[in-house]
């Protein structure tokens, strides 16, 4: 009730400003449109993981580590940890955010959403706490880079894995 006069007062002021009057209604329209899109987009995101090939962690063949637990894998992919458990420098490779394989890897293997991972990278890069991962555009490039970069860590669908990379098991 205490707010009622406030809103009235504000709306009087808005009426005196034509520019102000126009744009908030535009924003309201955008918000409404966004809401409707949200409702429509909701069910489309549900996907069953069984239809897809398994994704495995892959590393450069000389990496001595053979398994990682999930929290460590997550810390490395979030760029908070910079070395393998034995002290060797890690070079992290990732697919584009919008690549479905990246989204599945983040959700299924790391238990984070791709947008959380992107936010984590931005926070590291712009606070001086870490660096951004190396980007590759597809799985063929991922395999080539991981196979040729000492300390590299990435991920591939099973069908892309060959003897040029070292498969890391995750706990």
């Amino acid at each position: 009730m205490a707010h009622k006069p406030a809103i009235q007062q504000a709306s009087v002021k808005i009426r005196t400003m034509p520019l102000f009057c126009l744009i908030p209604s535009a924003i309201r329209t955008v918000v409404l449109a966004a809401l409707m899109l949200a409702l429509m987009a909701g069910p489309a995101n549900a996907q069953s993981p069984e239809q897809h090939a398994a994704i495995r962690l892959v590393a450069h063949p000389t990496v001595a580590t053979s398994w990682l637990n999930r929290d460590t894998t997550r810390a490395i992919f979030a760029m908070r940890q910079r070395t393998w458990p034995d002290g060797e420098a890690v070079q992290v490779f990732v697919l584009p955010n919008r690549d479905p394989v990246h989204a599945r890897f983040a959700k299924e293997q790391l238990a984070v959403y791709p947008h959380q991972l992107q936010l984590a990278w931005d926070r590291m890069v712009f606070s001086g706490m870490g660096q951004a991962p190396n980007r590759v555009s597809n799985q063929l490039e991922m395999r080539e880079k991981v196979a040729n970069t000492p300390g590299a860590l990435g991920y591939l669908e099973r069908e892309y894995i060959d003897e040029s990379v070292h498969v890391i098991s995750m706990e």
Binding site: R82, T83, G87, E88, A89, V125, F126, G128, M129, G130, Q131
Partner: peptide, 15 residues
């Protein structure tokens, strides 16, 4: 900003 890793467990960064 710029950052570099001069050693495996070292990061130098400035913005």
């Amino acid at each position: 900003n710029a950052s570099i890793r001069p050693h495996s467990n070292l990061l130098v960064a400035a913005q």
